[in-house]
Amino acid sequence: MTLLSAARAVRENAHAPYSRFKVGAAIRGADGAIHVGCNVENIASPEGTCAEAGAIAAMVAAGCREIVEVAVIADGPAPVTPCGGCRQKLAEFARPDVPVTMATLSGEALTMTVAELLPGAFSAAHMGDRP
């Protein structure tokens, strides 16, 4: 299964009764495993969870701490980018050169790096020497 097909498959499990905008994400960890997530909306908006955040949580729960590739898919007119919060979450676990492929159900795709999606990401370097 490809990363994009894993994202497409998990997208079907999204809980999006309010926006009806289902999103699926798949990430490949440094261990080679694929971890998936879908958006989970909540009536008490914005208490839902983004697909990318769900995939990252699944990766961390499995014991992996490094992302080497990302795929996100939604049914929109153009490839949907991760939100700002998810861009920072991706930057927490991915090097700046990690590719993020964003796709539509109709097959249009756009690939950018984490650094292109979030230039000037906040990082541990900004924290200085902390114990």
Rank of each mutant, 00 (worst) to 15 (best):
C86G: 11
M59T: 11
G107N: 13
H15A: 13
C83F: 02
A62R: 07
A109R: 15
C64M: 03
A78E: 12
F93V: 01
R95N: 10
A74S: 14
I56K: 05
F21C: 09
C64P: 04
G48D: 03
A16K: 03
V40A: 14
F21R: 12
A26L: 05
H35D: 05
A16V: 04
A55C: 10
M59L: 11
V10D: 07
G85I: 00
T101R: 07
T101D: 09
E52D: 00
D75W: 00
G29K: 06
F93I: 00
D75T: 04
V80Q: 12
R87M: 11
L117Y: 13
G76H: 06
V114C: 04
E92I: 00
P99H: 06
G107M: 11
A55P: 11
L118Y: 05
P82N: 03
V70D: 09
C83M: 00
N13F: 06
I67P: 12
P79I: 01
A44I: 12
S123M: 07
A103H: 11
G24W: 04
E66H: 13
A7Q: 01
A62I: 03
A115S: 14
D129G: 00
A62M: 03
V80E: 08
F21M: 08
L117F: 10
A9H: 10
A125E: 14
I67M: 09
A103F: 14
M112Q: 15
A124T: 07
V98W: 08
P131W: 09
M112L: 15
P131H: 08
L3K: 02
E47L: 12
C83Y: 04
V36N: 06
G120K: 01
M102N: 09
A71R: 05
A14R: 05
T111C: 09
A103T: 13
R95S: 14
T49S: 04
N39T: 05
V114R: 02
G54T: 05
A58C: 11
M102K: 05
V36Y: 08
C86E: 11
L3D: 03
L110N: 06
A121E: 10
Y18L: 10
H15T: 13
A103L: 14
N39E: 07
E92V: 00
F93P: 01
A44M: 15
D129R: 05
A9C: 07
A51N: 07
G128N: 11
Q88R: 08
A124G: 04
P46I: 09
D31W: 07
M59K: 11
E116K: 08
I43S: 14
A44T: 14
A51T: 02
A78S: 07
F93D: 03
C86H: 02
A44P: 00
S45A: 11
N42A: 12
M1K: 08
L118T: 08
V60M: 10
P17L: 13
D31N: 12
P17H: 12
V114L: 10
D75N: 07
A16R: 01
G76C: 04
H15Y: 15
V68A: 02
D75F: 00
P99T: 09
I43Q: 13
P46Q: 12
A33D: 05
N42I: 01
F21N: 08
E41F: 03
V68H: 01
S123A: 15
A91I: 01
E69R: 02
A115P: 06
A44S: 15
G37V: 03
A61M: 02
V72A: 06
T2M: 09
T113K: 06
N13R: 14
L4M: 10
